[in-house]
Design a protein around this nucleic acid. Structure first.
Lengths: 188, 188
DNA sequence: AATTTTATTATACAGTTGTTCATTAAAAAA
DNA sequence: TTTTTTAATGAACAACTGTATAATAAAATT
């Protein structure tokens, strides 16, 4: 079992802390490696031994948030719902609350200059959560990969629109809206 | 009426041509301003008077493709369909064929390193097309902005999954799949 | 505590970026 | 055609990038 060198931990913490400070003042996109290293008092060469670019450092933060997404999603799992929209209970959809909680972070992730990769990573996590639902409650008459992709994206689409409207609605309203939309699409 | 200087047209054409050549060999992300200018035989300073970065040059190409999307969407408009999924006719959804036609382009647009902005631009065009449908056939019991966002994203979600599966299905199959998914979500 | 391992540093390098400015040359207007 | 306007060029600038290497220092191992 390989023990992590304390120097590495310290370096990474310094770099992360510096990035977080800079993110309060400027966009991810405009932050340079040099700038982070100056603030973190870490040699620029050291940065490159751990991360290839600023985005890779940001992704460590990303992983933390994704873990929280998973937790907040599973928490109210007792109200289990399936892809059958009429059984959908707004209280079970925690993702809007999660995003509300980490609004600052998601403003970065959904900004115009952010690489599409963040969308994909977020998508993957969400799809995986939906897959768990489907495996438990859904039937399998259809390509489950495509279906869960469809479902995950329906939610993410709403989230993107939410972001574009500057998160003016609150999470509860977004939950209700999702239910409304699903009902509307479902009705004849 | 301001007449465009011939020199500007020539410069822009040279730059675009150079970018297109480079895109056949490497990713958008790895192409530098210097490289484009070397190939186009255009002074680097001139590049910056017209475009701030490589992505801005790429967006000119983007606009052309978007015009084609609109054309290919409106073409079979006679088979008009609404958001009521049961009336959806696969033949009316031309977007998959459009993407199939410009596959090379969409591989760039959906690549991990592409800025989210391309997604937004594509989204806007698609949403606008759907809005036209809604204004003609939809009722207005619900927030139309959110609804068209939801619809546009449902389709884009499928497109992204299509891209991730390396466009292995053909456009016709994707059309059928969309209809299947909508039916499935609609059924009780 | 002494030794070994390895992460960090300082330094240097060629290349890119984004900007500025005087000069040149090409297009538009007279 | 001549004059005027303005786009393109070449050169120079400081700053950042990505990489490499020898020297140093800090952690892990014995």
């Amino acid at each position: 079992m390989k023990q992590l060198d304390l120097r590495i931990i310290k370096t990474k913490e310094s770099l992360k802390e510096a990035l977080m400070l800079l993110l309060k003042e400027k966009t991810l996109n405009s932050i340079s490696v040099t700038e982070i290293c100056r603030l973190a008092k870490v040699n620029r060469g050291t940065f490159y031994t751990h991360y290839g670019q600023v985005e890779n450092l940001f992704e460590e933060y990303f992983k933390e948030i994704m873990q929280n997404l998973k937790d907040s999603y599973l928490e109210p799992y007792k109200y289990a719902w399936t892809i059958h929209t009429k059984e959908l209970n707004p209280a079970t959809i925690r993702i809007f609350h999660h995003i509300e909680k980490y609004e600052e972070f998601y403003r970065i992730v959904f900004s115009k200059t952010a690489p599409l990769n963040y969308y994909y990573l977020l998508f993957d996590h969400l799809q995986q959560l939906l897959d768990e639902d489907m495996r438990l409650h859904g039937n399998d008459k259809i390509d489950t990969g495509m279906l869960s992709a469809y479902q995950a994206n329906a939610i993410l689409g709403l989230v993107i629109e939410w972001h574009r409207q500057d998160f003016k609605q609150n999470a509860e309203e977004m939950n209700k809206l999702l239910v409304e939309l699903l009902k509307y699409v479902t009705q004849d």
